[in-house]
């Protein structure tokens, strides 16, 4: 979280805003551990999962990246967004019914260790329209490029990009509403 880190992130984000796709990926990959550090500290002893905060914050960073001014430091901006998402997650957690959960605790625990933990974003993904879901799935979980996805789903590339954009925006909105 030093000044050098901030300059590094700011440079990547500036390139990303200028349209450099690779720099944007690098920016998100380098921002994630910074956010994870805060999220772990905030979620100690609480019922909120740090990785959920990281994912929701990255999604919010993505849809709100126009609120970064290219002459402003990146870290305070990231921190504010992550903090906002953490507060959101705590509120959501508080509203969730907890009655009787103790009875299932063992089952839940064993299910969680058996298969990879399903993050909140994964659940939001399930709620997308089928077309958007298959595009987001192909590009994220299966790691396809836009071109490969287009070929596989028999769509043109613009349609894939539109579906991806709308799908991600819909997931972000879902979290914003909760």
């Amino acid at each position: 979280m030093s000044g050098a880190d901030d300059e590094h992130l700011a440079r990547l984000l500036r390139q990303a805003v200028a349209g450099d796709e690779k720099a944007y990926g690098d920016f998100l990959r380098d921002a994630a551990p910074v956010i994870r550090g805060w999220a772990r500290r905030w979620t100690v002893g609480g019922g909120v999962d740090a990785e959920d905060i990281v994912q929701e914050a990255l999604l919010a960073v993505h849809v709100k990246r126009h609120t970064w001014r290219d002459d402003a430091p990146v870290i305070p901006w990231l921190h504010a967004i992550a903090r906002h998402k953490f507060v959101d997650a705590v509120r959501r957690q508080a509203r969730r019914p907890t009655v009787g959960i103790e009875e299932y605790e063992e089952t839940l625990a064993s299910v969680e260790t058996e298969k990879a933990r399903d993050w909140e974003i994964g659940r939001a993904l399930e709620g997308l329209a089928p077309g958007q879901r298959s595009v987001v799935n192909a590009i994220s979980i299966e790691g396809c490029t836009v071109a490969e996805t287009a070929q596989r789903l028999d769509m043109n590339e613009t349609a894939v990009r539109v579906a991806l954009h709308r799908g991600l925006a819909a997931i972000a909105r879902r979290f914003g509403r909760s």
Partner: peptide, 15 residues
């Protein structure tokens, strides 16, 4: 969805 998978999706959204 793994965080790295999410990043792939976000980075591909170049609109």
């Amino acid at each position: 969805m793994d965080t790295n998978d999410l990043i792939k999706a976000l980075a591909a959204d170049t609109r």
